[in-house]
């Protein structure tokens, strides 16, 4: 057991537990979602003391150097002094629109004062503290509200609650914005390759619109995967973007189809992307969605020539608070 100084208080972390649990238990409001080291929303900064190596697993060298670490992976062995991640915000948001899209996707629009980049993610926090990470499909310069697209899981605690109980006019706490999966305009000629399945499309939709808004010049190609054609929930929006911008191409991909549907490719999205781009050298890529899918896309794109630094990913890791199915 070790003690940790946070703001003006001291908490002790029992062995087998972690700093996030101890801080939450003591009543501190610390952003968190996965509690498994994946979402990085519980990131904090150490001011004094020795961190266990596991607390910095997976962070970038620059983050490590600044003393950033993940509270949910930190079981301190000796006394630490820590502070909140200075970059994280916590704001109140009001639901202004709620819509069920095809493919069991719930679209929420929230009014809030959050600073963010399109494609980053936030934690939505219910009154009782239940919290889940969702990516932002909105572009702050194009629309005033935050937009999230939530896949409804049959036994999903948050998604079922959002579908059945959350109403327009209700408020939610929003923490964020996190992640470095967003568009940057340092190389406007670079070809962009984006792919995602399911609601992995949400941040990609934001990133594409952000890039186009900023006048990205190089070709932009988005592959959107779904099980069946009816689940391609942003099909209309993406088609109209593709006809409005000559450098934007949209390729819908479905796993199953009885007859070859018009303008849709059938098969595995990884294979189809590979057939289009056997060589990815010099390209910049964005992949979002289920961890298995994203890891495969990343590896294949790296092996085909893209530089690691040019591959940006958001893995939708399920929360460790999820009740196992």
């Amino acid at each position: 057991m070790a003690t940790v100084q946070f703001e003006d208080s001291m908490v002790s972390v029992a062995s087998g537990s972690n700093l996030l649990e101890a801080l939450l238990h003591a009543g501190h409001d610390i952003p968190n979602a996965c509690r498994a080291g994946a979402c990085q929303s519980c990131m904090m900064q150490v001011l004094d003391g020795e961190l266990p190596a596991a607390a910095q697993q997976g962070l970038k060298a620059t983050q490590k150097a600044q003393g950033y670490f993940l509270a949910c992976c930190c079981e301190p062995q000796t006394h630490l002094k820590v502070q909140r991640n200075p970059a994280s915000q916590s704001v109140c948001a009001v639901v202004v629109d709620k819509q069920l899209l095809p493919g069991r996707v719930l679209r929420l629009r929230l009014s809030s004062e959050l600073d963010y980049r399109s494609g980053q993610f936030v934690n939505l926090v219910r009154e009782d503290g239940l919290s889940r990470a969702y990516s932002l499909a909105s572009v702050p310069e194009l629309e005033p509200e935050l937009e999230v697209q939530i896949r409804i899981h049959d036994d999903g605690q948050f998604s079922q609650w959002a579908l059945n109980d959350l109403a327009v006019g209700d408020s939610l706490k929003v923490q964020g914005a996190f992640g470095d999966c967003f568009y940057t305009s340092e190389n406007m000629q670079q070809p962009l390759l984006l792919a995602g399945t399911g609601t992995g499309l949400s941040p990609l939709y934001g990133i594409v619109r952000d890039a186009l808004r900023l006048g990205h010049d190089g070709p932009i190609h988005l592959f959107a995967g779904a099980r069946v054609a009816d689940d391609l929930y942003l099909d209309k929006e993406l088609k109209s973007l593709a006809s409005a911008y000559r450098n934007f191409t949209y390729t819908p991909v479905v796993l199953e189809a009885e007859i070859q549907p018009d303008g849709i490719e059938v098969g595995d999205i990884n294979q189809i992307m590979k057939a289009h781009y056997p060589d990815t050298k010099g390209m910049r890529a964005y992949f979002c969605g289920s961890p298995e899918r994203v890891q495969k896309l990343r590896k294949q794109t790296f092996l085909a020539g893209a530089s690691m630094q040019d591959i940006h990913c958001d893995q939708f890791t399920p929360s460790s608070q999820a009740v196992a199915a």
Partner: peptide
């Protein structure tokens, strides 16, 4: 070298 966390692995390569 084929681990899930490619970023972490890249740090070790470095």
């Amino acid at each position: 070298f084929d681990t899930v966390d490619m970023d972490e692995q890249a740090v070790k390569q470095k």
